[in-house]
């Protein structure tokens, strides 16, 4: 409620500044101009949204699969954890923007390099949170499971994997916020469509309202993905939203 009020206030200020200050549309379009672009270019925006949404969703799915698998491997092998974890952290310092053109050279103009870039950006928070989730099972719980006769695999199946599920989804929620940016960079590096491609064309053509409209659509995409993940978390792991220790 408060967020909506603040948003409207900022929007109003922007509108006032853009109109009263007589700022050119290609420098800073008023929100109403952006709104008009959203409406006028709706077909164009929709087509390109579908492309980018596909990249973000599939890239995130790829990141979830690879990230969770890697987290499980690191969890089961302390040796691997010691060897790989520092490299993983270091890999996050690689500026993906500069690597993106290389990936285009390797994988071509299709969707593949985009998926790889989105996944590269998204998988790190997923690995970290999933690993934390796997390790969140208390030693007491493990002792209990051992006396109940559970094997290592059964401890994973019954305790660790369910504990890691909401954690992995939390990681995905963090990742999806940057996933859209990754998709745009990937499209900058070489593409024929997508919201990034649209931005890349609109800005030099001084179609600034259209560029802003693309940004709005991109933001809406991130919010939708986030909301869907939050919903999935609620449905798949309802226990994660409850207090752990009710009063006896």
């Amino acid at each position: 409620m408060l967020a909506a009020l603040l948003f409207l206030l900022l929007l109003g200020a922007w509108e006032l500044y853009a109109r009263a200050g007589n700022v050119d549309d290609f420098i800073l379009p008023a929100p109403t101009e952006v709104g008009r672009a959203l409406y006028d270019d709706r077909g164009l925006l929709w087509d390109n949204l579908l492309v980018t949404a596909q990249e973000v969703v599939l890239g995130l799915a790829l990141a979830l699969v690879v990230g969770a698998a890697l987290a499980i491997a690191l969890h089961f092998s302390p040796l691997l954890r010691r060897a790989v974890y520092p490299l993983l952290v270091g890999s996050q310092a690689i500026p993906i923007v500069t690597v993106a053109p290389l990936l285009v050279v390797w994988f071509g103009y299709g969707i593949l390099p985009k998926l790889v870039i989105v996944a590269l950006v998204c998988f790190f928070p997923i690995v970290v949170t999933t690993l934390d989730g796997l390790r969140s099972v208390e030693p007491e719980q493990h002792k209990l499971l051992r006396t109940l006769g559970a094997s290592r695999w059964q401890a994973f199946r019954w305790a660790e994997a369910p504990a890691a599920l909401p954690a992995a989804l939390s990681g995905a929620k963090i990742a999806v916020a940057v996933g859209g940016i990754a998709a745009v960079f990937a499209e900058y590096a070489g593409s024929e469509d997508g919201l990034g491609h649209l931005l890349l064309q609109a800005i030099p053509q001084l179609e600034t309202p259209r560029a802003w409209a693309a940004v709005v659509v991109l933001a809406a995409l991130a919010v939708c993905c986030f909301a869907l993940l939050a919903l999935a978390e609620r449905r798949l792991a309802p226990w994660a939203h409850r207090r752990k220790d009710p009063i006896p």
């Binding site: 208390e138 007491e140 719980q141 002792k143 209990l144 006396t147 019954w158 305790a159 226990w239 409850r242």
Partner: peptide, 10 residues
């Protein structure tokens, strides 16, 4: 073992 904290799986 039955631990002090029930360790039920939520």
């Amino acid at each position: 073992l039955m631990p002090q904290r029930d360790q039920l799986l939520p």
